[in-house]
Design a protein around this nucleic acid. Structure first.
Lengths: 204, 204
DNA sequence: CATAAAAACAGAATTGACTCAATTTTAGAA
DNA sequence: TTCTAAAATTGAGTCAATTCTGTTTTTATG
């Protein structure tokens, strides 16, 4: 039936997210006051807190949009990986990293990561953990695919390897967003260098 | 000369840290109000902010104490590592992890990690990054030691390997402190399983 | 031993995230 | 259409970190 109430709800959600995204971008996370987001979205402060438990959850909603796009883009690589283990990993990692600053600034990433460790049980904290797991799972899927193609040894512990690759990449990404001067090409090169050790170990 | 001013300063630093450590432990980080820390340390609120830029820096000072102890303990392993690559890594990782909850609760770790990503340029943010680097460096030193002992192949990229091992361990530790139910033995077992892939690749 | 400059202290005032009791709006039954 | 309960909205009020400004203490100097 999609009653009036449901429509208004969706509309307000959208307005809040759009207002927050704009203000986070322009004024930074701390600089974007809830009062300003409320004004921009044309709702009251109380309404924002009716939709989101706290300021972090608003950012969380934006981060989720971004990461889900990345996961989607990654599927293509898993389905048709380059016929070389090193390139396959590099391509997937590349998609994650190149996409990452599309909608989110480094400052927004820093805040998002901080909140997810600070409040792991908040809605966003849990969502963020789930996203990390999904990314790990996708890397694991790529490895399984490469095993099926005969490019990776069968006796490799795919689960542990997927975690290892994701954890390393994620930690490198964290350090990357912590330094405003850090550049994407250097980040990718460093990860490639680290993965080279693994590639040598697991290739057929 | 050690004037009165310098002595008072050191004394106040100590009192603030002791008061904060006690209150963080008993009431948690959020629960420990600056006002209460000030009262307990017998200084005013303004004085606390004269010594530390913000609440996070007070926690930071406590974390630094802990990590420096860990680094010290690790030196012994680097100097005389077990004569087996897997055991050597496991011993060093074990020291880090077993020590970690000595003075700091999981909640305090969560806060510390969050602050270090949120404010990478604050005094604590920079100190935390330096501590991470020191730990990475220590793992790298262990690998160099194992290479010298002929237990690890000479052609291995020790720098990249050290980063890989540290980043993975650190990420696992982050996930560990995010889940109150997570237990140390499971964490160590998971890291051992991940490192097994590397050990197989780098052993002579 | 006075005294002025510098450093440190104190705590009231500010600020901004979040709460909550009162009010308004919507859905749907009569 | 009218009425009522449930759902949603509102914004003034609360709370705690941080800032700010005047005061006090320490040091250096003649």
């Amino acid at each position: 039936m999609s009653g009036l109430r449901a429509r208004q709800k969706a509309d307000r959600h959208r307005r809040i997210i759009e207002a927050a995204a704009e203000l986070f971008r322009d004024a930074g996370y701390e600089g974007a006051k809830i009062e300003a987001i409320a004004a921009q979205a044309e709702v009251s402060i109380g309404t924002i807190y009716n939709y989101y438990q706290n300021k972090g959850d608003i950012l969380g909603a934006i981060v989720s949009l971004e990461v889900n796009e990345v996961l989607n883009a990654g599927q293509g690589v898993v389905a048709r990986p380059p016929a070389n283990v090193g390139d396959a990993l590099d391509t997937l990692v590349g998609i994650y990293i190149e996409h990452s600053l599309h909608y989110l600034s480094k400052e927004m990433w820093r805040q998002a990561m901080a909140i997810s460790t600070q409040l792991p049980d908040s809605p966003f904290g849990q969502a963020y953990t789930a996203l990390d797991r999904a990314l790990t799972e996708q890397i694991r899927a790529l490895i399984a695919r490469l095993q099926a193609l005969g490019l990776v040894r069968q006796d490799i512990d795919g689960a542990a390897l997927g975690e290892l690759i994701f954890n390393n990449m994620n930690m490198m990404f964290i350090e990357f967003v912590k330094r405003d001067k850090a550049k994407i090409p250097e980040l990718r090169a460093a990860i490639r260098r680290q993965n080279r050790i693994l590639v040598a170990a697991i290739g057929v």
